[in-house]
Nucleic acid binder design. Structure first.
Lengths: 192, 192
DNA sequence: TAATTAAGCGGACGCATCGTCCGCTTACTG
DNA sequence: CAGTAAGCGGACGATGCGTCCGCTTAATTA
């Protein structure tokens, strides 16, 4: 057995991590997230490129780290929070309601952190994030509860409308309310 | 009025266009389409980079040109072909059936030309293609016929499961039949 | 067939970004 | 306070992009 002694992070390292995340947040919000380069982030953080690469392999993983915080919050509410988003208080909300509530919460997350989502979960990379697996399991469980067949295929299909690129594209012509209305209808159509 | 004399394409130019498309088709099919570079294509086609850029601004537009042929075919069947895919013979298929038939045809297209789709319609670029506008209008019309509200939002959402990246991702675990079954269910859930 | 012309050609070039490498610095430990 | 390894950073080589411009050649005209 290897001893996985976690040997605390050095103070300067922690400080630089914080600087990097703060600088990246700014840059992502300021312009097109796809155009932010690793060098931009390093410079804005007042850190060398080597230091940056030591922690984050690429731009997307930085955006992912920033997004993670907000996603964890939602994940918590899904697992332990009040209904209809979570399972409790009042208990036993029907799966269609819970799916619609999940959709609304995700749309809200996208609306508030679109630039991070566009930086992190673009294209095929989206499916590789840990968060995607979580959302997928959640939706699949709701489909099971609603006794909908073809759950494995449908779970991904129901998450597809939440792709950041699509949300951004739709927001050019539609309001958040219109998008949420569409999602609401979709949830009820599929899960009763 | 400017005289738009179309002045026929020179013979060598036509020959090179054909060479480029043939070479690109090969390269896209051979490996990861995202890793094919413009220089690769130029070399494989036996053509200089300048020549390549004269016609195609980037890799995606080459894949798009190749895909276009197949897409046109499907578009024609949607507009003028027999039912339930097209409007005629037998006429008046219900919108849910027509949507399901459209889904099946698109899934088939993706299955047969996945490498081209991955080369052409990846990420946000997908929404900018002419083909996307066509699919969107078609789905929206079917939703109108089925008298489904929130059509503007739903049209994009119903196309989202056909994103090439998602199809490729799902095909790792699912068969084409399972995917088509999911799409079929989705079509009937939303459009009756 | 020869002369004319402009469309077409191609590869060298300049630029941006990536990701690594390694000698120097500094926070922690005893 | 000395030893040490974790951390730092910017120079560097590699890769791909897209352009530019002098040369070639297909098409046209006489």
């Amino acid at each position: 057995m290897a001893d996985t002694a976690p040997r605390r992070e050095r103070a300067d390292a922690a400080r630089n991590r914080a600087r990097v995340l703060a600088a990246a947040e700014q840059l992502f919000a300021a312009g097109d997230p796809a155009r932010v380069t690793m060098e931009d982030i390093a410079r804005a953080a007042g850190v060398g490129k080597g230091t940056l690469y030591r922690r984050f392999p690429d731009r997307a993983s930085i955006a992912e780290a920033l997004l993670d915080e907000h996603e964890r919050d939602l994940q918590d509410r899904l697992l332990r929070g009040p209904g209809p988003l979570g399972p409790g208080e009042p208990p036993g909300a029907p799966p269609a309601e819970r799916l619609a509530a999940f959709y609304a919460a995700m749309a809200d997350l996208l609306e508030r952190h679109m630039h991070l989502a566009l930086g992190a979960e673009t294209g095929a990379r989206r499916f590789a994030t840990g968060a995607y697996g979580f959302w997928r399991a959640h939706v699949r469980a709701l489909l099971a509860e609603a006794e909908v067949p073809d759950r494995d295929a449908l779970a991904d299909m129901l998450l597809a409308p939440l792709a950041p690129e699509l949300y951004a594209f739709q927001r050019r012509r539609l309001t958040p309310e219109q998008i949420t209305a569409g999602l609401h209808r979709l949830a009820h159509a599929i899960a009763g």
